[in-house]
Simulated scan of single mutants.
Amino acid sequence: MKFLKDVFNLFYPDICLSCNEQLTDNENTVCLTCRHDLPTTNFTFEASNIVEKIFYGRIPLVQATALFYFLKEGKIQQLIHNLKYKGQQQVGTFTGNWLAHEMIESNRFKNIDVIIPVPLHKKKQNKRGYNQVTTFGKSLAANLDINYLEDFLIRVTNSKTQTKKSRFDRWKNVEQIFKIKNTETLENKHILLIDDIITTGATLEACYLALNKSKNIKISIASIAYTK
Rank of each mutant, 00 (worst) to 15 (best):
W171H: 11
A64Q: 06
F109T: 08
V114A: 08
K75C: 01
I198W: 10
N143R: 14
N28P: 00
K228E: 12
I191N: 13
L67R: 03
A202T: 02
I76A: 04
Y130Q: 07
V51C: 13
H81D: 02
N173Q: 08
S48Y: 08
F45G: 09
N97Y: 05
T163Q: 10
T185Y: 12
A225Y: 02
F136Y: 12
Q89S: 12
K179P: 00
T157V: 15
F152D: 05
Q125P: 03
I221D: 08
K123T: 15
T44V: 14
H101A: 14
Q89L: 11
N28I: 01
K218M: 07
A142S: 15
L211M: 08
T185D: 13
N9K: 01
C16K: 00
K138Y: 07
L17K: 02
L23S: 02
Y12S: 01
C16G: 01
S223C: 14
K228M: 05
K53F: 00
Y12H: 12
M1T: 10
T44Y: 06
N111R: 09
T199Y: 10
Y56L: 14
I54C: 10
Q78D: 01
F11C: 12
I115K: 05
F68T: 08
N158F: 11
N212P: 10
Y208F: 15
K75N: 06
H121C: 12
A142E: 15
K138A: 04
Q22Y: 00
L99I: 11
K2F: 13
A202F: 06
Q77G: 02
D6F: 05
F11Y: 11
N212Y: 06
L67C: 04
I191V: 13
M103F: 07
N26T: 11
S106G: 05
K124S: 15
N26H: 07
L144G: 10
C16F: 00
F168S: 14
L193K: 08
I59L: 09
K110R: 12
D6Y: 02
K165G: 14
L140V: 13
E105D: 09
G129N: 06
N107P: 01
K86D: 03
I80D: 00
T163C: 01
I54S: 12
I116S: 06
